[in-house]
C-alpha cells in the first residue's frame, strides 16, 4: 500500500480515484437492484427481506447522520420520529386508507410537524441538555403509544391487509423491495447533495462555531430547526416503511434503546460522512443477526466492538476507507 502511495503520480491520475469514488454509489445501487433477481438462484430469498430492512433503517440513520454529523445535534430521540411515522400509517389503516403512498406521505407530514414542534423547544438547549430533552420527548411519545388502547398499546398493531402500491401492485413479488431501494437511494442522494449545498455549509459552519455564524448574520436557530424538521420527516418515512415491512407496529420501535442504537450505528459508520449511515447500519444489523445464530451471549461482542471503534476509528469506519482513497 505504502509503495503505491509513494509512487509519483502521473498527471491526471488524481482524477481517477475521484471518478471511481463517484461511481461507487451507482455500483452499489446496481448490485442492490439486481439482488432480488439473483438471490433465489442461491437460495437466499430470506436475505431479500433482510436487505430491505437494512435499507429502511439506513434511511433513518442517514437522516440522523444529517443533523448529527453535519449539524452537530446529538439527538437521542430519533426513534420517536420513526415511531410517529409508523403510527401514522396505523392511524391511516384504521381510518380505512389503503394506499401506501397516501399513508407514507401523511407519515412524512405528521412526523415533520412533530419534529418542528419538538425541535422548536429542544434546540434552545445545547450538548447533553439537547440530548436529554430529545430523549424526554421520545419517552413521552413512547409512553403515549404504550397506553393508546385504540392502536393496540403495548400489544402492538397488526396490519392484516398490506397497503396497496397503486399501479405497481402485482408487477413482481419483490416490488416493495425496489420501492424501498429507490426511496433509500433518493434520501442518500438528497442528503449528500444538501450537505454540499449552501444550506449544508451553513449547517456545518454552525456545528463548528455557532457564535461566529450568528455574528455573520446567519439565522442559526432557523437553519437548525429546518434541518431537524427535515431529518424528523425522513425518519418518519423510515417508520412508515418499517410498518409496511413488518405489517406490524409496536411501541418498542420508540424505546430509548432504539434511539441509542441509531446513534451508535451512525457513530460506528462515521458521522458527517455520507457513507456513515449505510455502513453503520450494515455492520450493526449484520453483526447482531449473525452473532445471535451462534450464542445467547451476543451483546458483549457488540459492546467490545463499540469500544474498539471509539478508540481506533474515532471518526467511524467510513473514514478508514477514506484514508485508503487518499493514499492511492
Amino acid at each position: 500500500m505504502s509503495s503505491v502511495a509513494t509512487l509519483p503520480l502521473p498527471a491526471g491520475a488524481g482524477a481517477r480515484p475521484r471518478s471511481a469514488a463517484s461511481l461507487l454509489p451507482w455500483v452499489v445501487l446496481a448490485v442492490l437492484a439486481a439482488f432480488p433477481l439473483i438471490a433465489p438462484a442461491f437460495g437466499l430469498e430470506y436475505y431479500i427481506g433482510f436487505v430491505r430492512r437494512l435499507l429502511i433503517v439506513m434511511i433513518a440513520a442517514t437522516s440522523l447522520n444529517f443533523i448529527l454529523g453535519y449539524g452537530g445535534m446529538v439527538a437521542l430521540g430519533h426513534a420517536g420520529f420513526v415511531g410517529v411515522g409508523a403510527y401514522t400509517v396505523v392511524a391511516m389503516v384504521e381510518a380505512g386508507v389503503g394506499s401506501a403512498w397516501a399513508a407514507w406521505g401523511m407519515a412524512i407530514v405528521i412526523s415533520a410537524v412533530f419534529a418542528a414542534a419538538i425541535g422548536a423547544v429542544s434546540l434552545r438547549a445545547r450538548g447533553v441538555y439537547f440530548l436529554m430533552i430529545t430523549l424526554a420527548f421520545a419517552q413521552m411519545l413512547y409512553y403515549l403509544a404504550v397506553s393508546l388502547r385504540t392502536y393496540g398499546g403495548d400489544d402492538g398493531y397488526g396490519i392484516y391487509t398490506p397497503l396497496s402500491l397503486g399501479g405497481l401492485d402485482g408487477l413482481h413479488a419483490d416490488i416493495f423491495y425496489w420501492v424501498v431501494l429507490a426511496l433509500a437511494a433518493l434520501v442518500f442522494a438528497f442528503s449528500s447533495r444538501v450537505a454540499v449545498s449552501r444550506f449544508g455549509h451553513a449547517l456545518m459552519g454552525i456545528r463548528d462555531n455557532e457564535t461566529r455564524m450568528a455574528a455573520m448574520g446567519y439565522p442559526v436557530y432557523r437553519i437548525k430547526l429546518v434541518a431537524f424538521t427535515g431529518a424528523g420527516a425522513v425518519a418518519g418515512l423510515a417508520g412508515a416503511l418499517l410498518a409496511s415491512h413488518n405489517n406490524f407496529v409496536s411501541p418498542s420501535l420508540m424505546h430509548w434503546t432504539e434511539s441509542a442504537t441509531l446513534l451508535v450505528m451512525v457513530a460506528i459508520g462515521g458521522m458527517g460522512k455520507r457513507w456513515g449511515g449505510p455502513l453503520g447500519v450494515a455492520i450493526w444489523l449484520t453483526l447482531a443477526e449473525v452473532l445471535k445464530l451462534y450464542t445467547e451471549y451476543w451483546h458483549w461482542p457488540i459492546g467490545l466492538m463499540l469500544i474498539l471503534v471509539v478508540f481506533f476509528a474515532p471518526k467511524g469506519v467510513a473514514t478508514l476507507f477514506e484514508r485508503k482513497e487518499k493514499t492511492q
Partner: peptide, 26 residues
C-alpha cells in the same frame, strides 16, 4: 421471517410476552 424463509420450519414456539406472539402470528 428467517425461520420461515430460510430454514423452512415445520413448527414454531418460544416467545414469552403476548406482544411478541401477536407480532409473529400472522
Amino acid at each position: 421471517t428467517r425461520y420461515l424463509q430460510r430454514d423452512k420450519i415445520d413448527f414454531f414456539t418460544g416467545p414469552i410476552a403476548s406482544n411478541s406472539a401477536l407480532a409473529v402470528g400472522p
